[in-house]
Design a protein around this nucleic acid. Sequence first.
DNA 1: ATGACTCCCAGTGGGAGA
Length: 265
Amino acid sequence: MKLATWNVNSLAVRLPQLLDWLAAQAATGSPVDAVVLQETKLVDEKFPQAEIEAAGYRVVFHGQKTYNGVALLSRGAATDAVKNIPGFDDGQARVIAGTVDGVRVIGAYFPNGQAPDSDKFVYKMRWQDALHDWVRDELAHHPQLVLMGDFNVAPEDRDVYDPVAWAGQIHCTPEERAQFQRLLALGLVDAFRLFEQPPKSWSWWDYRNLAFRRNQGLRIDHILVSAALQPRVQACVIDKPMRKNERPSDHAPVIVTLGAGPAAG
DNA sequence: ATGACTCCCAGTGGGAGA
């Protein structure tokens, strides 16, 4: 089973790339079973549901005008879908969840935060508090759970191309990193770090400054798996070549491969 | 360099992203 997350930075622009990518993944013999998207930037009326279904995927989505917007694509049906964090009043479309092949899949687009002294940072902290408490409850009901998306945090200095320059800056503040650790403390593990990885592995590169060519980026897109799911994790990779496409998103997809689940009964 | 690009909604500029 293959799960993935990708911040597409406008699904209207990236839809052809998404469909090509799904087809290319399937052509390897290991299709993507579920993928969560962030920054679709589409109201639900404009969501390309027909095109995605024609590609063989079901889809649930939750969008808004101009900003944010999330979707969950899956080959099998996603049941018990949830849009946004229950009980947290939020005008921004940032969370989509569903159960796919017995795995609770939560896709999240964490707030950017803009600057550590801004109102948006306060919102980022409040939002993560709410997410934390909800994921704790979800884990109680769904031991096999994956939380993935654009976390907008680089958990450690090795996730930053220039940790000295970024020290204390947005995505690297102690507060944001502590929130990440609080999620891990729920019993989740960073799937990417279960494996030896190339040094300087990033999931996002700024569009400016020739950042991709210079490999100046951050690892801010993550896949966290529950303890019950961890024994099934076989691989976790960042699909860096996707950043080389014509008109790329500034983020690359992250993919996790799971082995078969425990036999029923 | 408080930049550099891309996307959006707008409407010939500006906010947001990270």
